[in-house]
């Protein structure tokens, strides 16, 4: 009986088996959907100014208060989410798109191939990523998607370092050899057996890397490389709040909430999956 229950439990990802994990994952999904759809339900336009009600605290009219030119922070906070959420997702796709094939090839071939790829990953990993990203912005301009793709490249090296061990131990399973004896080609073996057995650590890393991407985007916006006024961005809102910190400190609260929530959602989902999210090389600035 217990073995049947076990078999059923295997269907549920580990991080959904604890309340913290469910909360983290739920929060992420809620925020993601809310931000992507914000333009259709937000109470005010992001550029709409109420010059009488500037730098106001939270009220029934402006739920999270207003900024220095009287724009509704609630609308701005949610609208600001859409771009980072999408750009970070693209970054995650690039990171895994580069990282996973290299991981699978290195794990399959071993020997010199693995050594060469490992060296390359190590090299990339010791690049100071924030500086590289600023240089990229300086060179190609403030274009969030290409810049985040470059960040994805840097992150792929860290993914390699974390997941290569998982991939190699997954290939130790005799059912991999059995499939090869069946006459299954290399790509099919990887897709049908190796990758699925790595699903859990991949999901954990994706959540962590996604959260890191959000923090990086906010950091860049904080430095002034956001979508540009009057478009809202979390990072710039923090900057704005810090400029006005003497006369209206409450602005820090809403501007903080979103990046925090996302970072924490990913972190929590990752941690509750049973592994400490330890991420060499990539980490929120």
């Amino acid at each position: 009986m217990s073995s049947i229950r076990q078999a059923k439990q295997q269907r549920i990802p580990a991080f959904l088996r604890s309340w913290g994990g469910v909360f983290g994952a739920g929060w992420l999904i809620f925020m993601f959907l809310a931000s992507i759809t914000a333009r259709w339900w937000r109470p005010y336009d992001v550029a709409e100014q109420d010059l009488i009600a500037r730098l106001q605290g939270p009220s029934s009219e402006y739920w999270l208060g207003t900024d220095a030119v009287g724009r509704d922070l609630f609308s701005r906070v949610f609208t600001a989410g859409a771009l980072p959420l999408q750009a970070s997702a693209v970054m995650v796709l690039v990171a895994f798109g580069i990282g996973l094939p290299l991981i699978l090839i290195a794990a399959e071939r071993g020997g010199r191939v693995e050594e060469a790829i490992g060296r390359f990953a190590e090299t990339i990993m010791s690049l100071p990523s924030t500086v590289i990203l600023l240089a990229a912005i300086g060179a190609i301009g403030n274009r969030i998607y290409p810049v985040m793709m470059i960040f994805g490249l840097l992150v792929s090296a860290a993914l390699y370092r974390i997941l290569i061990g998982v991939a190699k131990s997954s290939r130790q399973h005799l059912y991999i050899d059995a499939a090869r004896v069946d006459g299954m080609g290399s790509i099919r073996v990887n897709l049908a057996h190796v990758l699925p057995s790595m699903a859990r650590p991949i999901a954990v890393q994706a959540a962590i890397v996604y959260a890191i991407g959000l923090l990086i985007i906010n950091g860049l916006a904080f430095l002034g490389f956001g979508p540009g006024e009057p478009q809202p961005s979390w990072g710039f809102m923090i900057k704005d709040a810090s400029d006005n910190i003497f006369n209206s400190p409450w602005m820090m609260v809403p501007s903080r909430r979103r990046p925090l929530a996302h970072g924490h959602g990913g972190e929590c989902a990752g941690r509750c999956a049973g592994r400490t999210p330890r991420h060499p090389g990539v980490h929120p600035p």
Binding site: G235, R256, L260, H264, H283, P284
Partner: peptide, 9 residues
């Protein structure tokens, strides 16, 4: 908590 807050905040 510290891992998920942005340092600039």
């Amino acid at each position: 908590f510290s891992l998920s807050i942005p340092s600039f905040w």
